[in-house]
Every structure is written in C-alpha cells, then in structure tokens.
Write a protein that binds this DNA or RNA. Structure first.
Lengths: 190, 190
DNA sequence: CGCATTTAGTATCGAGTCGATACTAATTCG
DNA sequence: CGAATTAGTATCGACTCGATACTAAATGCG
C-alpha cells in the first residue's frame, strides 16, 4: 500500500538525517535537537522566539524544551530576555557563538549532494512535502510556522514597506521572510 | 535557498512522525526505534533478517541495535535463531506477539489522514522521496534495501516462479516483494 | 597449513533525551 | 476579586545511543 511505503520512506530519511546531524553536532557537544533549536531561532521572527513557540515547532513537551534551552544557554549559544509586556514570556536570542556553531555544523553536505541529483532541483518534492506537513499539522491542530509574507495578515504598504494586520506593527523586507508562530495561510482562491 | 527549506521540511516531518510513533508505542512500552525494527523484520526477506542488516537499515551502530534486539527479545516480540551455515550469524523472527503489536501500534492514523488530502494520492511524493533516499544512500555508501523483484539479480522463470541470480535460490511470489539487503537496482535503460 | 585480518554479534558505561508530574508566577476572564 | 489559563522551570526515571572493549567464527594470505 502506498501509504505504508511513504511512511517508511519518511521514517528512514528522518533517521539518516538525524544520524548525519548527530555527527555534525558532535564536535560541539550538541545533539540533533540542539541544532534544530538553533536553526529555528535563526529563522523565526520576534513574535516567535519563545520557548512555547519552539516547543510547538519541535512537537515536544515544554518541559523537554526547557531543558534543551537551559543547556544551550549554559553553552553560551543563546541568551534569554524577559518580555517587557508580558512578564511570563521569555525571548530567545542567538549569541554570536550560536550563529558561528550553526554556520559550521549545519551544512548537510551529504544531503546537498543527494539533492543535486534530483530532477528539477527538488521543486516538486518541496511542494509535496509542504502539502504533507500542512496536512499533518491540520490533523494535529498545530501551527504552520510559515513565512510572514505568505500569511493572511500580511499587508503591503509600499516598496519594501509592509505591516502585520494582526499586531499592526510595521515589517521590514527582512522581517517578511522569517517564520511566524501566528502564521495563517491565505485561503485558497486569492 | 531550496536545499535548506527541504532540509527543514524533512527534519520537521521526521520529528512529528517520531512523536506520533512514540505515542503509538507507549501502551506497549515501546520506543519509536522498536516499532521501526519490528516493521523492518516484517518486510524483509530471509537473507536480511539479521542484526547487521537491521543496523544498516536504521543507520545506527551495531552495539545500539544489539541492545534494542535484546529488549525486544525479552518482551517476547522476536526470537533469535542461529544460522546453520555461518555460525556467527543470527536470524531474527517476529513472534505472534510481535506481529500483533505491529498491527495495533503501527497505523499512523494522523498520517494517513494527511496523506488523503494529497493530490494524486502521493505518487509524485513517493517517487521524489525514493530518489532522494537513493541519493543519500549512494553518497553514504549504503545499501538500498529495495524489493527483491526490482533487483538486478531477479530472474523470472515462469508464472509465479522466480529465482535469485546471486544465491541461485528459487523465490516465491511472496518472496519477491520483500526487502533484500543485497538489493541492487537495475541500471537505467533496461 | 597456520596466523593475521575481517566479520557478526554482545557487554558495559556514561552522557543525554524525553515525557510525566508537580510547581511558581503572571495574565485573563467572569 | 477569585478562578482558570498560560509561560516557564525543576526533578525524576526510563530509555537511546555511541564508544570502547570483547568473543567467536570465517576468511585470506604467506
């Protein structure tokens, strides 16, 4: 049955990818999940750099993520900052050391190589996976973490000038490509 | 960059899948890797039901897999059998209890649901993922674990009668769909 | 043949993940 | 104002995983 084959494929690719990542993080003393957390923090926007958002992104429990963050903070790869509005909330920022580690440890060389042999540079694959992820998230009542500019709250106000229709805050061109926790896809037919 | 997005997608899907699997195995006291091992043993052929083959399939070290197998044996989900030819080799067989657990714990309900919403039933996705896996394996000097009937050593001898050109053993129709450790893809253009 | 090498597998150890449970503090809701 | 919710932390135990070291069987090479 096709579903079972697909399941196996994704599972195996996930395993191999994690094994790769384990090796990549080894000389920094980092586990796969640590690199994943750092990468998320690198690519999320200022509404989404919190433990809660990361928890949902990774699909783990908040206790588990709290531990992970503790370790990354001890290693000096990230820094915590209290929110000024809501004093329960903590914002996570990569330190220079964190960014350096990411640059060194992330390039999935083996993976890039495999991708190069794919027809069309993997465009079709990306599209299909995006759809699948969306489906899994919908079935799981999870957030999508899409890029800001693809959100239904995204407003264009001029060349390089944007605004979030939800928070009313202005957004730069750089902001617009970051992942947002509050992201909601534009409904089909727009 | 497209490679980075693809990497993230696969990583996230892998995470969510593992979280699902963790929940599924919970009431049997099984971890994701245990279910993966059982599933492999269910779908591999008689040349490939060994610790070494499983080790390569999962991409772990042989020590780690040895431990996993010990646990599964203690739980009565599989049974070890010495090879009669090569006395170093052990063959792994699912017990009835093992098969029962698989039937109960595997159905990735959430996943099937997500897949149903995919255009074309995921045919395109399966093809693309297969290609990617092949690429990763090639880059890693790993075996492919394809179905027997798609191997270059597979010989048709009549309706429902086949033979492995490597071991010269006859193969049944059931054999021909199982995963083989010695699998080698038919070179393109055949 | 006979000794080195390779291969299959196991044993043991320590670092670390992860979920579960229980907790605090701040916010929101009625 | 008080109850419920939300963000986050602390602690614990079961378990994974790689590293290292080991045994036993098979193979290869002089």
């Amino acid at each position: 049955m096709a579903v079972d084959r697909l399941y196996s494929l994704l599972e195996r690719l996930g395993n191999l990818l994690r094994t790769e990542e384990r090796a990549a993080g080894l000389r920094h003393g980092l586990q796969p999940v640590h690199l994943q957390a750092l990468r998320y923090l690198q690519s999320c926007n200022r509404y989404s750099n919190t433990p809660a958002a990361l928890t949902e992104y990774l699909g783990l429990t908040k206790g588990t993520v709290s531990q992970t963050l503790l370790l990354l903070e001890e290693k000096g790869l990230l820094r915590k900052e209290a929110d000024t509005e809501d004093r329960r909330v903590v914002h996570l920022h990569l330190t220079d050391a964190g960014r350096t580690v990411l640059k060194e440890a992330i390039p999935p060389a083996l993976f890039k190589q495999a991708l190069a042999g794919l027809p069309g540079g993997g465009e079709a694959l990306e599209e299909a996976l995006t759809g699948l992820l969306r489906g899994v998230q919908a079935a799981n009542a999870q957030r999508s973490f899409g890029a800001c500019s693809t959100c239904k709250h995204f407003r264009r106000e001029g060349p390089g000038r944007f605004r979030c229709g939800m928070t009313q805050e202005p957004l730069s061109r750089e902001d617009s490509v970051l992942l947002c926790r509050e992201h909601e896809a534009v409904p089909p037919g727009h």
